[in-house]
Design a protein around this nucleic acid. Structure first.
Lengths: 221, 221
DNA sequence: TGACAATTTATACGTTCGTTCAGATAGTTT
DNA sequence: AAACTATCTGAACGAACGTATAAATTGTCA
């Protein structure tokens, strides 16, 4: 057999289009992550992707649609990572420990933000950018909030005496702390004097800090 | 003496210029805070301020210079607030408690972000926006870092056994948590179901959370 | 009052923006 | 081979952009 006809390696018409589409999305992901939606033009995305202007519109539609597509492309994978870890914790005999819940929420993001794939690293920066901008919440919030609610349910089980509202606040602060390891690396480097390490290198410190915060809040109730 | 030549109340030529300049800076502050540097045009700032296009350039210079001026205009006041509180704490007989140090760093910002003056509220949103964007750090980091270092020195005295690097990380996470109360209010509202209260309303919870985080990190060392 | 300077207006310049589209190109199918 | 269609090119559109400046306006001062 000289060539498998279903093998996606075939550079036929459709497959070439798919590859181009991914190149465009990758370029948009990198640039949006680095400088934000408003600072990036479709022309720069085209240049970064090595295609002409019309191709970006052809595969990505409107600039706004392109941005949304870049987000949606990876959101399912990140949610699946978190849900899988949560599922393992919930399947045990005992209710999960709070530390493991915090770990399960933070680690998938930190891993993607630090590990090899530069596109995932860019995506992590992009997420950090838009979560700290209320303008995107109506569009993006419903992608992430359901998983956060599932974690909140589990956290509530681990801390039954703490009011839900306090736990919501604590999780919000935890997420903000997590994202700052990606978004504010220059500040970390500037304050500490050394260049900032990868976000994953701060994992233990971050979990300790946030768990200490959760516990302190639980203790007050 | 019919008129004090140095009296700034005179609405003469120079003073009218000064008032216009403030209107321009105020408008720029509101718009930059709401949508970011790249999304705002000089023409929108002019319209918001109720002046013509050239006036913005006349009083604000380049768009970039205008942005820097907006930041610098209030940074001294915020730094002074924090330094004053720190000075009070350091002037006592005993070394200050960690809780009071965290309080002294967080409360001035939360107060300005919540109290009456809408321009200060806008400025607080603007700070939250640019701190979570490494692109601005080279330009504005040196405005805030010296005060942060002074607080770090005091925090180090309160936790002598904890490595400086851990304290730097903890303060960074603390700042990120603080800013999220201003920057991610939509997410807080979405997750909790209720509209988010003013940042100052979360002050106790925030301080408890961050202090718990500091203590947990100190305990590990 | 008339010269002077600070402030404001009105307009223009060249560039870049997002979007659209007719036509060229190149696999696929009949 | 010919019809077909997904993909790509190249060019154009009006609008908005940041910046600059000559002229008009307005208050100050000799």
């Amino acid at each position: 057999m000289t060539e498998n006809i279903e093998d996606p390696v075939t550079d036929g018409r459709v497959l070439r289009g798919e590859a181009t589409r991914e190149r465009v999305l990758d370029a948009a992901e990198r640039l949006f992550a680095a400088e934000g939606f408003d600072a990036i033009s479709i022309r720069r995305i085209a240049a970064e992707a090595g295609v002409t202007l019309g191709v970006v519109s052809f595969h990505g539609g409107t600039k706004h649609q392109l941005f949304a597509t870049v987000i949606e492309r990876r959101v399912a994978a990140l949610n699946a990572d978190r849900r899988a870890r949560l599922g393992v914790l919930l399947s045990g005999d005992k209710p999960p420990e709070l530390r493991d819940l915090v770990d399960a929420y933070l680690t998938p993001y930190l891993t993607h933000a630090s590990r090899g794939d530069p596109q995932w690293r860019a995506y992590a920066r992009l997420i950090a950018r838009i979560v700290s901008d209320d303008r995107w919440y109506p569009e993006i919030g419903n992608f992430y909030d359901p998983v956060a609610q599932e974690f909140l349910d589990a956290i509530q089980s681990a801390r039954p005496a703490t009011p839900r509202k306090e736990l919501v606040t604590a999780l919000t602060l935890t997420v903000a702390a997590m994202l700052s390891l990606v978004a504010s690396r220059a500040r970390i480097a500037g304050l500490s004097g050394d260049p900032a390490g990868e976000p994953l290198a701060y994992r233990e410190t971050l979990i300790t800090f946030c768990l200490g915060g959760f516990d302190a809040i639980s203790r007050e109730s």
